[in-house]
């Protein structure tokens, strides 16, 4: 997502990346990834936003998920390496696009590690919402 992060502002929207650790973890990670200033890097230690957004939390989806192994292998081939986990290891991710007024026009609920919408999909959803 980071290489195309600037495109969200150019498309007339806002990109926010939300994790679930402490603010210091978010800060360290944001500096490591190198997000541009237009991106809001946030953290939700209580995971209230994850719950209300409909994201899943599951040990089974994290550990016993053959699709995740395939995605992990693909990521390795492309040179992506996961660092030390900081946050809730069982929490799954996802994505939303929300219009002014609060209407959710796009929702993606991750079913395991590596399962997430690509930047092209998310940008298209944002442009439709603009």
């Amino acid at each position: 997502m980071r290489p195309r992060a600037d495109e969200f502002a150019k498309a007339g929207g806002k990109l926010a990346v939300i994790g679930n650790g402490w603010p210091a973890m978010a800060k360290s990670w944001a500096e490591h990834v190198g997000f541009p200033p237009s991106v809001a890097v946030l953290t939700d230690p209580t995971r209230k936003a994850y719950d209300l957004a409909g994201m899943k939390r599951s040990v089974a989806l994290t550990l016993f998920n053959p699709f995740a192994l395939v995605r992990w292998g693909r990521a390795q081939l492309h040179g992506f390496r996961q660092g030390k986990t900081a946050g809730d290891a069982w929490q799954q991710g996802g994505a939303l696009v929300v219009q002014p007024g609060g209407k959710v026009t796009f929702r993606y609920v991750s079913l395991g590690p590596g399962d997430h919408p690509g930047p092209t999909t998310l940008l298209a959803a944002l442009k439709r919402a603009a």
Partner: peptide, 15 residues
């Protein structure tokens, strides 16, 4: 998303 649409990416964890 008060003035413009927002894309929220929920990451599994940092790292």
């Amino acid at each position: 998303w008060r003035d413009k649409p927002a894309a929220l990416v929920f990451v599994r964890h940092y790292g």
